[in-house]
Every structure is written in C-alpha cells, then in structure tokens.
Design a binder for these strands. Structure first.
Lengths: 157, 157
DNA sequence: ACGATATCGTTCTAAAAAGGAACTGTCAAA
DNA sequence: TTTGACAGTTCCTTTTTAGAACGATATCGT
C-alpha cells in the first residue's frame, strides 16, 4: 500500500484517506465549514505555509470537494466553496469534533457548542443504524465482502 | 497553529487531528478495528515502514487509544488492543468509510458491507441530533462559543 | 504620479518526515 | 545447527513541509 496511490485501493476508508488524510487537510476542511473561502483567510487563520495551502486546495478541487469560483476579474480572484460532495464530509468532521469534545477537552470544557436549528437545542452527534435506528457500537457490527471486494476481504470498507 | 502542538489548540477538531491526523494513522486504526493486534501483522498488511509503524503505535498508546499488552515472556511480545477511548473512534472510521462508499467507489461497487448484529441487516451509518433524532445537515447547525472557548470564537469545536 | 494595500499564488532553501533495507536480540521448532 | 518468528532499531536516501521572500495585477489614498 503506497501513500500516493491510496485512491486506487479497494477500500473505501483508504480512498477517503487519500482525500482528507494529509497533514492539514482536515484543518482546511474545518475552515470551509466555518465559511472561510479565500486563500488569504485560510492562510492567516491556520498559519499553514502558502505552498501547502495551495496544494491542499488544488487537491480538494481535484477530488470535487471544493469548487474554485471566480468572484472578480482584473485581477482574477477565486473563492473555494464546498460542493455537495464536500458538504457530505460533515459527518466526518462532526464525529471528529465529538471525539475531541469527549476525550480531549481540558478543565475549561468545550470550546464550541453546536445548536440544531430544527429543534433549537445544543446537541451531540449520534451515529445510528440506517435500518433499525439503534446507536451503532463497534462490537455489534459484522463486516462481510461486498460486490467490489478484493479476492480476500482485507479491508474495512 | 503548529503541527506539533496541535493537541494544545483550543479546538476539539485540532486536538483529535493530533491523534489521528498523521499519515498512516487512520489506516493503522482501520486494522485495529479489523482485530489486527501485532506488529508484524500491521506491517505486512499495510506495507508501512517499520519505523513509522512503531511511531504510530507509540502515539496511539500515549493518547490512550491503544493498550500495549504483553502476551508472552521470553522474549517479551506485545499486542496492541483498542481501549474504550479507541473504540469510541468507531463513528469517525464509519463516517469515513461511508463517504468513500458514497463518493469514491468504482463500477465494482462497495468492497465491504456492514451488518448490524442487532437487526441483522446491512446498513449505512446515519448521523442524527442527540436531542431530536433528526438526521444532521451542515446547513442546519449553528455553532456558538462554549465554556472552553478562546476569546474570539475561531474554531469549529 | 507615487506609494501602500490587497489578493493569489510561486520560488527558493533549510529542516523535518517518510521510505527502504539491513540488522539486533531472544526464543522455538526442524 | 540452522531456520524462522517476532518486535523493534539503525542507517541512509528521498520526499514533504516549514519559513520567508518574491511576482503579478489591480485598487485606493494622497
């Protein structure tokens, strides 16, 4: 398994890691969900090197997670905006935040709370089974080969 | 924001990225959930360099995600086993797999299916609001400062 | 007209991380 | 005695990342 051909692996986790598994990628994504859109703003908020930022934005555009949209001519200026594919990364971001809220906070407590506009309450994200609606626990899940499985099923998904 | 002090950031995403955001970390974690426990087995399945593998395992132990358990003396041999803290990473892993299943599969389809032992059916993971039970969409969530917020609320969580 | 500022990158060099292969130490089995 | 399993470590090369400066293009203030 080579890092630079991860997207060709027959494993959905490996392929997603090819998109978000780089150093800085998840932090750039965090900014996207906070509605940051411009190069300078990403750069100054994250302190990432400009070179890496350019790389990561290019990679996200290549994988269809961000759209590069011109917002002015002369000089041409672009914004980076989440596509639907990018918005679909939200559960990943929220589950990461939630693990941090649970296991990595200090005595001051959570830095941010999340309010669900629909019900008006501060919430935690909960992952459930699409079929029965029960919360998912690692021990209660059995994996088996799907149609796109390699000969020996050697991947989590 | 420096990569090597990420765990001290006042942001739950950044702190979690300090644990799982390295190259290879998520792939090692995948193997853990597939019940891989020994150095050689991780190494041969992933093709990761031995040096990096040793580093990543050490880091997971340091952050309490894995437990290093001696399973024989003379010579001392160890296994790496998920702690509860590690098992709690399951929603992150599943949401990553699910995004890959949705957006990165080729014509062959999903490599792996997941069966929920409780209801017996193959499922997708769905993220819902802990308060009202509705599925979570990025656009329907409002973030606001929590008790551990930095002066200007500049983090997703 | 002139300099300052804004924006989105690219270029350059040094430092850090990752890749790759061989090696160590201990024990069991053939 | 030799081979092999296991869990790393050591050494060296290649790739990535960090850090700072530079370029191109345009607007704004004076």
């Amino acid at each position: 398994m080579k890092w630079d051909t991860l997207e060709e692996e027959q494993c959905s986790l490996a392929r997603t890691v090819a998109v978000i598994g780089d150093r800085w990628s998840l932090l750039v994504l965090r900014e996207c969900f906070l509605r940051i859109r411009r190069f300078e703003e990403f750069q100054s908020r994250l302190g990432i090197t400009r070179h890496l930022l350019a790389d990561r934005l290019k990679k996200f555009v290549k994988f269809g997670v961000l759209r590069r949209v011109k917002y002015q001519d002369r000089p041409a200026r672009y914004e980076y905006i989440l596509t639907q594919r990018g918005l679909d990364l939200y559960p990943i971001v929220m589950s990461i935040v939630h693990w941090g809220d649970t296991h990595m906070v200090d005595e001051r407590g959570r830095p941010l709370l999340h309010q669900h506009k629909k019900c008006g309450k501060d919430f935690d994200p909960v992952m459930i089974c699409s079929e029965c609606g029960e919360p998912l626990l690692a021990r209660e899940v059995h994996t088996h080969a799907g149609p796109g499985a390699p000969k020996p099923a050697a991947a989590i998904g």
